[in-house]
Design a protein around this nucleic acid. Sequence first.
DNA 1: GCTTGTGTGCGCGTTTATGCGCGTTAGATT
DNA 2: AATCTAACGCGCATAAACGCGCACACAAGC
Lengths: 248, 248
Amino acid sequence: MLAEDRLNAIVSMVQQAGSVTVPELAEALGVTASTIRRDLQTLDRAHRIAKVHGGATSLERAHVTRDLTINERSDLHNDDKERICARAAALVEPESFVYIDSGSTTLRLIEHLPRLEGVTYVTDSVLHAQHLALRGMRTVVLGGELKPETEALVGPDALATLDHYNFNCGFWGSNGIAAEQGFTAPDIEEAQVKRISMRHTAKRFVISDASKFGMVAPVKFADFRDATIITAGEVPAKYQSMDNVITV
Amino acid sequence: MLAEDRLNAIVSMVQQAGSVTVPELAEALGVTASTIRRDLQTLDRAHRIAKVHGGATSLERAHVTRDLTINERSDLHNDDKERICARAAALVEPESFVYIDSGSTTLRLIEHLPRLEGVTYVTDSVLHAQHLALRGMRTVVLGGELKPETEALVGPDALATLDHYNFNCGFWGSNGIAAEQGFTAPDIEEAQVKRISMRHTAKRFVISDASKFGMVAPVKFADFRDATIITAGEVPAKYQSMDNVITV
DNA sequence: GCTTGTGTGCGCGTTTATGCGCGTTAGATT
DNA sequence: AATCTAACGCGCATAAACGCGCACACAAGC
C-alpha cells in the first residue's frame, strides 16, 4: 500500500468516526504505531485532521481545546527558538511598558517572560493577549479589525491606539531580514501596525531564527538598522559581524 | 475512548442538562471522579463550561450567580436560550454595523448569527471576536486592558474606540433586569463599556432568560426603557405586558 | 555497482493520563 | 454557631502514549 493511500485512508476513517486511536489505525492499516504517529503528524501539519493525545479527531470536533494545548507545543523542539526567546525575555525590565508583536516566535517568547513588578504588555494579537492574561500579566490589546488567519488586529483603530503609547521596549517577528531591504512582512496592513508600533518604542528587538536572513517579503516595515536582531543558528557570514545582530 | 472525546462528551452533557454532578459524569463515562475533576478544570480554563462545587454548569448559568452550587438545577433554560438567540439573530440586517457585548449569552448568540452581506461585528470580548472570526464574519475588537476572568476589554482605550463608532444595532447581556433599577452588571469597568456602547447604538437589545427579571447587580448601565428585552420562559407578570419585552 | 534518499520498524528514555489515598475545605444540617 | 458529610486538591505510582535516534530495506539515480 502506498503511503499516500494510507494517509487518505486515515483521513476518511477520522472523518467517518469522528475520532480514532493510534492502535486502531495501526491495526486497520497493518503498520506499526510509529508509522501512524508520523502520519498523524503529517496530516495535522496539513490541517487535514487534528492530532490529539492517543489518536486523532476531525477538525470540527477539535476546535476549542486545541488552542492552548496544541498551539504551545506545535513546534516545540526548536532549540534555537528556545534560546532566542530566553535571551529576549531577559531584556524586559521592571516597571516597563512592553510591546509584543503578533506571530509564532513572539508567542513562544511569552512563555519565557518574567513576572516582574509593574510591567504592562501591549499586543496586537488576541491570541497573544490571552496567553499573557493567562500567565497573570497585565495585558492591553490594540483595537481594530481582526484578521482571522493571523489573529492579529489591523486598521485605523489599531494605529490610533498605538499613537497614545510609548513603549520602553518591544519585540517583533519578521518574515524577511536583509541588509538592503530591511525587515519585511507579507501583508500591507500588518506591516503598517509593525511600523507604527516600532516608531513608538525606545528599544526595538526583532527575534528570529537564522533562516530569515537574506529573505525578502513584499512589504518593508523597518530599516535594517532600526532594530537589534536576536537570533540563533547558522547566520550567514555577512550578518554575523554586524553590531545589531546578537547570536545566542 | 479518547480523552478528547470525553471532554466533548462532558461539554454536551453540560449544555444539554444545564448542570451535572461529578459522580454522574464519572458513571456515564466510565472513569473515576479524579479524572472528571481534572477534565472539568481543563474545560473551565478553556471557557467551555463553568466548574462549580459538586460538578459543572453551562457558562450562562454561572454568570448569574457567582457562588452557585449544583443543587439548584433548574435545567430547562437551555431550550429557552436557543429560542432567544435565534430570535435575536434574525434582527441583524444586511449592510449593518452590529455591536456584540461580552458574556455567555451573547456567545451563544454568535452561533446563530446569519452570514449576511456587508455586516461588521464589533465586540469588547476577545473570545467572542475569535468565534466571530472563526465563522468568517468581519470582526472588529475594541482596544483596552484585558480582564483575565471575563476576557473582556475595558478602560479608556475601549471607550475611546467606541466613540468612533455608531452601530445600527447591538446585543447585550445583563446580570440584573428590574423596572426601577434598570439593567445592572457586577463590575464597574464592564458596566462602563456597556453604557458607552449602548449610547452609540440605534437599536438596543438585551437578551436574557426569564430568571434575570427582578435581579439587581451592583452597577447600573442602562435604564429599563433603554433597550428591548428578548427573553423566554416564565417572565414575571409585571414584566409580561411591557412593550419593550419580547417573549419567544 | 555504488550511492543517496525515503519510508518503516524497533528500542529507549521521557512525558502524559489516570487512579488512589490522604488531609483539607466548602456546604449542608441541626 | 457547631457539627457533619461530601467534595476537593494534591502528591504519588503506574501504565500508556510519545518523540527520537538508529538500523534496515528498497528504489532511484549516478
